[in-house]
Amino acid sequence: MHSAPATVAIPGYLAGIWKADPVHSEIAFSVRHLMVSKARGRFTGYDVTIVTSEDPLGSSVAATIDLTSIDTGYEPRDNHLRSADYLEVGKYPTMSYRSTGIRRTDDGWVVDGELTLHGVTRPVPLAVEANGFGPDPFGGQRAGFSATTQINRRDFGIDITVPMDGGGVVVGDKVSISLEIQAVLQK
């Protein structure tokens, strides 16, 4: 049985080099807080480059995220997250991601890659959805991608534990990460 080429599943697919548009993209995270809710935030400074090849399975992604740009909407918390207790931005000002491969799954696409955070590099797969490709009003081309993953902050040496009275911890170990990337085709 012969299956249709992967590009058929991605309307308007174009090969090329793409850069994330920071006005129309977001790199966000959430983590359990006080055992009852989730604290959310985002990084406002980043550089994301996506290379789409003729065969989507040959594509790649590389990202560098400025950890000092963390924004949870509450400056005292942001400053604490930048401190040696958590991200230690004085020593590790960025985190980076580099893809090592792309594969199809029943649900879509997975980008396999390596995340470097807090001086530690570990494999982190991203579940990716290609939202489409098309022209923009400025004579260029845009592509949209959504991606999600979950990491354990302890795997990256961020292992502060603040116990709560009565049990539990102030900040959970699992960090959910979501990316909404609108990328611009580079000339």
Rank of each mutant, 00 (worst) to 15 (best):
M35D: 12
V36G: 11
S37V: 14
S37D: 05
A39S: 14
R40E: 15
G41T: 07
G41V: 10
R42F: 11
T44H: 07
T44P: 00
Y46L: 12
Y46E: 05
D47N: 15
T49A: 01
I50Q: 04
V51S: 12
G58C: 03
S60Q: 10
A63T: 13
L67V: 12
S69P: 05
S69L: 03
S69W: 00
D71S: 11
G73F: 08
E75G: 12
N79Q: 15
R82Y: 06
E88H: 15
E88A: 15
V89W: 01
Y92M: 05
Y97K: 00
R98I: 14
R98N: 04
T100E: 08
G101S: 10
R103S: 08
R104D: 02
D106S: 15
W109M: 06
W109S: 05
V110P: 02
D112Y: 03
L117F: 00
G119E: 03
V120H: 00
T121W: 04
V124P: 03
V124H: 00
P125G: 02
P125M: 09
P125N: 07
V128P: 03
E129K: 14
A130T: 13
N131V: 13
N131D: 11
N131Q: 11
F133W: 10
F133Y: 11
P137W: 03
G140N: 06
Q141F: 10
R142S: 06
A143D: 02
A143P: 01
I151L: 01
R153W: 05
R153P: 00
R153S: 03
R154E: 12
F156V: 12
F156E: 05
I158N: 01
I158E: 00
I160W: 06
T161E: 11
